[in-house]
Design a protein around this nucleic acid. Structure first.
Lengths: 356, 356
DNA sequence: TTGTATGCGTTATCAG
DNA sequence: CTGATAACGCATACAA
């Protein structure tokens, strides 16, 4: 039980050559000219000894490692948990296991190297989120020899030469804003940041839409905060202090929205009666928020699925090398729940009437 | 740029032997008798060619793969996202990468085998959550040759021979119930299930405490539901229909609590004025729930850290093999927030007064 | 100080 | 039908 059994062990025990064992254990069709006698004997001994093939040795011979690397921008971002789940599931369906990489933790040179070092073990790498903050890592990855696919890098800045899969941020924000304006909101603020591509794009789409719609946009309506619950809380508290309070808020992510909802509650501002809030991503908890969160559903499965296909599928993009880099964009849907309602005409009268 | 550069490539380019390159590239101290000239020359060529060591070849020679396997019971359980984050961080600090395994998805024989196959690549494996549902996998793991550590398998059933790290479920539940009874609650229901060890222990602790305290426990006060948001919602709806409504509810996990809070809101039951709710785990969103959730804080970092130490640390338990198996138990803390309040004497009068 | 030879566990190519 | 034998990329004992 100490040392795992090797092919040689099996061969010795069976009184045959190690190469014979290899043949028998690998060839699925029984037809591959090996005598049935030795075949069964070797098989029996192999399972008796608990033989397991050694993946490293196989990989050394050029076999795929069946390892899919996942480098997450910020593993503490709640959005990526479902993303990793989805990735893990998709990978498994293709027989791959997921290796978690680290981007944020120590964005120094040494770490970047390490990440690439790990890369050697993987058949492909999936980048989750905008890794603009660790350019060195991206650089190393580019001159690495594994296939790299970037998910949620935004649709704009494609400095790196990786195929990308993203969501149509502009369409999502426009859907959300169309919903709010249809509810007669005229004072709509935005909570987001500049941290990474997707959020920047969402902000840009907000600015664009408001300009087009000719909606007022006082100073302070755009809140740049870190992407987290407390970021959302801070931003909302600040917005409530504004002379012209917004009647609706659109947040760049659901996590910000959750923080905003909570801060509204703490400040005794009724959602949606006094304030409508829209999120982005449709993370699982959004459907159980109090009140349930109107948000833009991220086509998570589609995006991850496409990413995995690009990474380890038998797609043709790798073979070409010259053709256009795939740049897939998936469309999100607006999910209307209870955190949005018609704008209150003047003073909030509907407080406590939970539109049920 | 096609094929990654090997040591031989570097050696050829530098006009030295491959073994020389190996020596130069591996020996940290400059003192290892190699001429400075060749040293710098080889180093230059190596980095010029973008040489990266091949982990598989190293591992084949007996070097550790620096891969830590993580087999998660149910990767869709929101509790495990932070756990995986913590694991990933802890692993990184020791230079390890985390490989995600799959338990739930296809609990059949083939998958179990696959998981063990992957195991060969890992230096150790960490089990996250009770894997009682996939005994075959556990069986395979036991006769595997890697170190296995079980986290959150409950403190009771230790059929398998793995070291374990758990939380003191009984203490956590008792703290929660002590808190509720101090608030004069006499009708306390429990939402949980039988799905896995930790939850079973929490339920048992609840039953025990209520018996000791001589508290009434009508039929239907124990709700067995799947561990998820909708499970919590269902359970709460059912509890509200009881003739003797509970004034407080303790849930086996925060996710169940989130579902319960949401269902209470949908049913226009004010939390905590009409109904107090306590969770277990202290997942990140609990602090931003509406209202914020009183819960039992899981010493996540401590547990994961201890697990990683057991798995890949230089601890002595592996060397012995005969001594007692480590069975670490960490103590949780009660975190009192806003979802609990004094039991309403009779009809709820405090509605809307948010105890601020 | 550096080159040669060997083996880690497999797979694949030859002979026999 | 099966047994030697040669890589795969690297580390290391040994020879020069």
């Amino acid at each position: 039980m100490r040392r795992p059994a090797t092919m040689k062990d099996v061969a010795d025990a069976a009184g045959v050559a190690q190469s014979t064992v290899s043949r028998i254990l690998n060839d699925a069709p029984v037809l591959i000219r090996v005598s049935e006698a030795t075949r069964t004997r070797v098989r029996a001994i192999a399972s008796e000894l608990g033989y397991q093939p050694h993946p490293f040795a196989r990989a050394l011979r050029g076999a795929p490692s069946m390892l899919l690397g996942a480098v997450v921008r910020d593993i503490t971002d709640p959005f990526f948990a479902p993303a990793i789940e989805a990735l893990s599931l998709q990978a498994k369906e293709r027989g791959y296991s997921v290796v978690l990489g680290h981007a944020r933790a120590t964005p120094d040179e040494a770490l970047a190297l390490t990440a690439v070092l790990e890369a050697r073990q993987c058949d492909a790498i999936v980048l989750l989120g905008d890794l603009g903050e660790v350019p060195r890592l991206v650089e190393d990855l580019r001159k690495s020899h594994v296939r790299v696919v970037a998910l949620w890098h935004g649709t704009q800045h494609h400095g790196h030469g990786f195929p990308t899969v993203s969501v149509d941020n502009r369409a999502g924000i426009r859907a959300a804003l169309t919903h709010l304006t249809a509810l007669e909101h005229r004072h709509i603020a935005f909570i987001g940041g500049d941290s990474h591509g997707d959020i920047r794009e969402r902000k840009a789409a907000y600015v664009e839409y408001l300009r087009e719609a000719g909606l007022e946009q006082p100073d302070g309506y755009i809140r740049d905060v870190p992407n987290g619950i407390s970021g959302g809380e801070q931003a909302l508290s600040a917005l409530l202090k504004l002379r012209q309070r917004p009647t609706a808020i659109i947040t760049a992510t659901d996590i910000l929205a959750m923080g905003a909802i909570h801060a509204a509650y703490e400040n005794a501002v009724a959602v949606p009666e006094e304030l409508s809030i829209v999120g982005f991503d449709d993370i699982p908890i959004a459907a159980a928020a109090v009140p349930t969160l109107t948000t833009v559903r991220m086509p998570l499965t589609e995006i991850v699925s496409a990413g995995v296909e690009l990474a380890v599928g038998d797609g043709a993009w790798s073979t070409s090398g010259l053709g256009e880099l795939p740049r897939l964009v998936f469309e999100p849907d607006l999910v209307v729940r209870r955190s949005t309602a018609k704008a209150a005409p003047q003073s909030p009268a509907g407080r406590g009437v939970r539109g049920n």
